[in-house]
Amino acid sequence: MSLEIMPVHGIGHVSEGDDLAAMIASAAPWLRDGDILVVTSKIVSKSEGRLVDVPADGPERLAARAEVLAAETARVVAARGATRIVQTHHGFVMAAAGIDASNVDKTRLVLLPVDPDASARALRAALRRRHGLDVAVIISDTMGRPWRNGLTDVALGVAGLNAVHDHRGEVDPYGNELELTQMAVVDELAAAGELVKGKCDQVPVAVVRGYPTTARADDGPGARALVRESSLDLFSLGTAEARAVGLADAAGLPDGTCPTPPDPAAIGRAIAAVRPA
């Protein structure tokens, strides 16, 4: 197998309402069927109008950003100082809900697309319908990883490609049946695309060519397939947050020596007392 990873230059500034399919097709007339587009979520968000106005600096900016973060947060996973790791309404666990202030005017913040899988499907459909191209589309964004330094790009949305390559049931060269191996191939492709996009080069789209798969006729289940169910997540909270939940649960347990149920107000005061720890 041999892969090519190519940057798409010349897309330029993206504003609300811009036609991303036309911009990409114009900047990359060399696109061909079977290619995989890796598109930075920021230009998708800009074209979809996922921006909010905030003060340029000062405490008013911090207050406005905190309000936006609260609106984008489904639950707080961990907090340390001003840093918040949260689960978004999409199910992604990320720092600051993926809110971005880079490569945008200082008075604006960029939010994640409302539905990255739908965005990927729409872009793929437009390229097929208006430009005759049968390509797969990955919407990517940058994330950190627990237990590892540094950032990498991952897939938030995908159309035309399976998010996971499931090796379960296959037999390795030593005769061992694979029982757990599921490769998040769209995350690997998103990270590969980032190698030629960069963060300061204003290259928001990359093309991966030669990946050995046939593009799906349908769009597939999308990147939502990568979101782990909370019941299967062994690390669903940070240490302090897990301790607070444990204390709250313990406070509600019945006491065999007390015939009356616990006082909810007293439980609330106890949780408030330990929360700063």
Results as ranks from 00 to 15, higher is better:
A242W: 02
R84M: 05
G81A: 13
V39Y: 14
V185K: 04
L195I: 05
E72Y: 10
V39E: 10
A120K: 15
R84S: 09
A71M: 11
Q202V: 04
R275M: 06
I5P: 02
R224M: 07
S45W: 01
L253N: 07
A82C: 01
D249L: 12
S140E: 14
K197P: 05
A242L: 05
G238A: 11
D53C: 05
H131S: 00
M143G: 13
E179C: 01
R275V: 01
K197R: 15
G144P: 07
L226G: 09
R80Q: 13
T83S: 09
R80E: 13
A97P: 14
D172F: 07
N103K: 11
R228L: 13
L62A: 05
G132R: 10
T214W: 12
P264D: 08
V158F: 00
A251Y: 02
V54A: 01
R75K: 11
R84K: 06
T239V: 11
G81T: 08
A266D: 11
D57L: 03
T181C: 03
G10H: 01
A265R: 08
G10N: 01
R50S: 04
G81M: 10
S15D: 03
S231E: 10
L234T: 07
A95N: 13
T88I: 02
D166L: 14
A163K: 07
D218Q: 15
W30G: 13
I271F: 03
A82M: 06
G220W: 04
G198K: 10
S230A: 14
G220A: 10
D263L: 08
A190S: 02
A101N: 15
A251R: 06
A66V: 02
A66P: 00
L62K: 06
P116D: 14
N149P: 06
L156M: 08
P146H: 01
A95S: 11
R61V: 00
V245L: 15
S45N: 01
A122Q: 08
L237S: 04
R80C: 14
G144T: 09
A240G: 13
A78S: 12
L232M: 03
I138F: 08
A125E: 15
I5L: 04
A78V: 02
L237K: 03
E16Y: 09
Y211E: 12
R216L: 13
A95K: 05
R121K: 08
V114F: 12
D249Q: 12
R228Y: 07
A79R: 01
P173L: 07
A78C: 05
D18S: 00
H89S: 00
D201W: 14
G268D: 10
P116Q: 15
R130Y: 11
A120E: 11
I99N: 15
A272V: 04
I271Q: 10
A63V: 03
A78I: 06
R124H: 07
G222E: 14
L151K: 09
C258I: 00
G49W: 11
V154K: 09
I43W: 15
D166G: 15
L3P: 03
G81S: 10
A240W: 15
N149Q: 09
E16Q: 10
D35I: 00
A82L: 06
L37W: 07
P262W: 02
V171Y: 14
